[in-house]
């Protein structure tokens, strides 16, 4: 899911960086507010742990293997804000030192995996926990969702950059990651269960009160703005090739992302000519549904809390 440089257009990269920056800034502020002194070395070492854990592959069938994201796992013990920062650091090191993911596209990767995957993953986990009262189940489902949602947002970014046609990349990404997500969910459930048996004191409990009205409004505003801008880029979509079905058949096995570019439009890094609105609208709609859905979930949980 780590998008390399060149696969996202500048506007999409720019917008995702902007949204990520807001998310990071907010997480930094909240972490400092809640900071127990030992949190700093803890976050650093946890980041090293997550990095190492992501190296562990597990088979998901059909010859594919996936690896852990660890967002919900980290957030379950460090909280949403410190968790998001930990994942952010992991992504930074992966991009800068190991060239896994680009620098301009780092904003999008952070948005997908650290903000959506970790921070919102935590919110989803707490929401489900409130309903079921079972930690194992909650982190499992949240883990699965975090991977699927992150992959979907990644697909939306690729589609908005015209790197890939929406109607192909969405099912591809979401499909593969629905499988990988099962691994994430199952492993998260087990790991959290194991750790809690030995050190039940480590589970994170929210120290600060639930989001205030002002904060909720800000969250909605940010989510809304992100969708709005993405939707603005969408109408300038490219024409999509007809050979799509041929490809889907030829490549029966899906590995990570697959994409296409039509010749004239690939030459430009920013929106150009094109009238095919179908896939563009599809991208915008799906993105809207995802973000709105998550935002609604946020609203429900914070309403219950506050």
């Amino acid at each position: 899911m780590h998008i390399p440089d060149g696969f996202l257009s500048l506007p999409v990269a720019g917008v995702s960086w902007a949204v990520s920056a807001v998310g990071i800034g907010y997480s930094v502020r909240k972490t400092r507010f809640e900071l127990k002194e030992k949190t700093i070395p803890l976050m650093g070492i946890m980041a090293a742990f997550v990095f190492a854990a992501q190296m562990l592959n597990f088979p998901v069938g059909a010859g594919t293997s996936g690896h852990l994201l660890g967002g919900v796992l980290t957030a379950a013990f460090l909280g949403p804000y410190a968790g998001a920062l930990v994942l952010t650091c992991v992504l930074i090191v992966q991009a800068v030192v190991f060239k896994d993911g680009g620098l301009l596209t780092l904003g999008a990767n952070i948005l997908n995996m650290a903000i959506l995957g970790t921070m919102f993953g935590y919110i989803i986990y707490r929401g489900i926990f409130r309903l079921t009262r079972r930690i194992g189940l909650s982190v499992g489902i949240a883990g699965w969702l975090s991977v699927v949602l992150g992959a979907s947002l990644c697909a939306a970014e690729l589609a908005a950059s015209k790197t890939a046609p929406a109607r192909f990349v969405f099912p591809a990404m979401a499909g593969v990651h629905a499988l990988i997500g099962i691994g994430e969910g199952v492993i998260t459930t087990f790991v959290v269960g194991f750790v809690l048996k030995i050190r039940p004191d480590l589970i994170y409990t929210a120290g600060s009160p639930a989001w205030s009205v002002r904060e909720r409004k800000k969250a909605f505003a940010i989510a809304g703005a992100a969708v709005f801008v993405l939707a603005l880029c969408a109408p300038f979509a490219s024409r999509f090739p007809d050979g799509l079905e041929k490809v889907a058949d030829a490549l029966g096995f899906l590995n990570r992302e697959m994409m296409s570019r039509t010749a004239p439009l690939a030459d430009y890094g920013w929106p150009g000519i094109g009238n095919e609105k179908t896939a563009a609208i599809l991208a915008a709609l799906t993105g809207t549904v995802l973000v709105a859905g998550t935002a609604l979930l946020v609203a429900r949980i914070t309403r219950k809390n506050g």
Binding site: A48, V86, V93
Partner: peptide
């Protein structure tokens, strides 16, 4: 860049190879 992130990255980098080594053995 936020100072908190820089400090966390600093710790992370220091321990990344150590933890990775331990993980490799377990893997």
């Amino acid at each position: 860049f936020p100072k908190l992130l820089i400090t966390v990255l600093s710790f992370m980098y220091r321990y990344i190879f150590l933890i990775q080594e331990e993980t490799m053995l377990m893997k």
